[in-house]
Design a protein around this nucleic acid. Structure first.
Lengths: 222, 222
DNA sequence: TTCATGCCTGACACGATGTCAGATAGTATA
DNA sequence: TATACTATCTGACATCGTGTCAGGCATGAA
């Protein structure tokens, strides 16, 4: 069972100039990536994971406290990648509808590429408190960012006045679990319909249905 | 540790005229209800569960294959209760916005009452294939129902034309995971803001923002 | 009271986890 | 190159939760 095209790699150059510990750690992470890409988290035991590394099972504990801490590492690796693609709407200037479309397009793309990993993280979060907290914090960052943006646009009269937080939380969950549903396990759905559905819901809710159509010309101004 | 007001009860009359096996089965279920009400599913071992029943651990396996099958039973018990409160919009006639508000109000109410149980079910679903499938089927019933209703209203020109399925799936996930977020673990949030947020998103997306305000007079006609 | 049914129990084997003392490989020094 | 030191790695162990089994015992019928 050889790895043709790893979905994630710790070290692009297999083992260029790494000390032994770094190499082992990378081997564990790569084995985890491969595993999660192909199988659900519940089947990933420390034993089955380390069997793919050529290193003994107990060596695992030199690098991670347990499976869940490994998943926490994985979450940290994905966290910024995901948050970054949402930046246009979060922090951008210009036509907010276009920015929102751009952010959601990015989210759908990265969700598609990393779906199985996100899925593994949420599965793991159900069985351990620490990781559950980390996942909630991750979502919370989006909640906060969405609140800020919505409030700013409300102040400009672009979004109707309403109690922001619950709506922001709901929309964040919409994104997270729509992506997990569509891309969390292979075979994955096509990204386009998902992206369009998210855009429709977000835009209708915040800016009004008249902007929700794909071809509605936004008031471009950048 | 006595049970003051059980969140769910199998037999209202403690043990009126039940044979021994039925009584034991009910005791297990009640113990599970109490446990889940107070602690996360991950801490519910067969041992800790049966300790609360006065029956030996191994007796558990006479009634359930494992913890997950027990949770599947719990899901079956909740399934109809939840699906029923959504009926107004799913199958009702009259002002669709008012019906939708009614359904979402019901969902928020039952979500509030059963939140910890739903949470336990999704947590358990992450660790076992069978239950995962059952949960997906449960959500799928809502997806199908929402699709049907949306298509009907589209045919009447009440909802703009768009690719229905992805939007229905997204909105269903919005509901499920908003309720889980708000009510899945105690202390639970207040239901009203959650309900209003759900209503705003659903109504804006499907029927347009002009109906999204709480006090907008719907075209009542019943 | 006696008998038969089948629920219940304690003990067992298994699998996964996390730890530990000792073996060993890698690295710095002479 | 040889030596010694450091820290990784290993196999074995104790623990915990699971699911099964043969035998004991409560329950209800005759």
């Amino acid at each position: 069972m050889k790895r043709s095209r790893a979905p994630l790699q710790v070290s692009p150059q297999p083992a260029l100039k790494l000390g032994r510990p770094e190499r082992t750690r990378a081997a564990i992470l790569n084995a985890a990536f491969d595993f999660i890409w192909a199988q659900p988290f519940r089947d990933m035991t420390v034993g089955s994971l380390m069997a793919a590394t050529g290193v003994s099972r107990s060596a695992f504990y030199q690098y991670f406290d347990d499976r869940h801490e490994l998943m926490e590492t994985l979450l940290e690796m994905l966290q910024d990648e995901i948050f970054d693609v949402a930046q246009p709407w979060i922090a951008g200037v210009g036509d907010p509808v276009a920015l929102l479309r751009e952010s959601l397009e990015g989210l759908a793309r990265v969700g598609y590429r990393r779906g199985p990993f996100l899925r593994a993280i949420t599965d793991a979060a159900a069985t351990e408190e620490r990781l559950e907290t980390a996942w909630k914090n991750f979502l919370g960052r989006f909640d906060d960012a969405a609140c800020t943006r919505i409030e700013a646009d409300q102040a400009q009269g672009l979004i109707p006045a309403f109690d922001v937080r619950p709506v922001a939380v709901a929309l964040t969950r919409l994104d997270a679990y729509s992506l997990l549903e569509a891309f969390g396990q292979r075979p994955r759905s096509r990204p386009e319909p998902v992206q369009e559905a998210l855009a429709r819901v977000w835009i209708s809710t915040l800016y009004g249905a008249k902007w929700a159509e794909r071809d509605s010309s936004p008031l471009v101004r950048r």
